[in-house]
Amino acid sequence: MSDTPLLEVRNLSKNFGAVQALKALSMQVRAGEVVALAGDNGAGKTTLIKAISGVYRPTGGEILLKGETVTFASPQEAREKGIETIYQDLALADNLSIGGNIFLGREPIRKAFGFLPVLDRKKMADAAKDTMALLDFHVSRMDAPVSNFSGGQRQAVAIGRAVYWNAQILIMDEPTAALGVPEQRKVISLIHQLKTQGRGVVFISHNLQDIFAVSDRIVVLRRGVQAGERRIADTTHDEVVKLMIGG
């Protein structure tokens, strides 16, 4: 694992007025690696991912993608560079199909009768089917609106959209928070799929069980600074909790 990390954050800080939400934080994510961010409320996890995904402009420090320094003026720019955020509240349009959601804002157009531009629904449905199959999610009716799906399936659609647009880094904010236990397991297995496809995943969770089930490393934040970084194999629940609360 000597190659350059997919994503590297060096000495990143973010101030809101006099409040220092993030102080000189550094971390790395390699291809095929799942890094968990843990910490109490207000520890700076959300600030960190918002800086990485282009929502906030960092006050100091730098972000490197595959070794190159990048700055993002907007989440769109971050997305174009391959950083996709899966939001907790699921950014899906419930009344559209899986394909409609994957292609939302970037719909493919074909010419009907050789001249009339129309939405290429077949292309959307085919791409949706292939993408969801990559995530081991098989749907019989591609034209059904996503409101008909369960929470875990909808989470899979949101991830599918990122996968289709070739996101290299997926940032997931509490992806299991609103789900039942079988659905949580489904999301965990989705994260495993992303990992085997060589993508990097940054994963925020309050659930240590989930973190230990899926992550390679854990970065613990406390009051805007890094309280510790451990390989999951070398640590325990107790140690992580102690790092979080500063025991």
Binding site: S140, Q193, D216
Partner: peptide
């Protein structure tokens, strides 16, 4: 820390 490959439950989004 061999990545435990949990076989994902085959999911047939049964939508009608």
């Amino acid at each position: 820390n061999a990545p435990v490959h949990i076989a994902p439950p085959a999911d047939h989004g049964d939508v009608r």
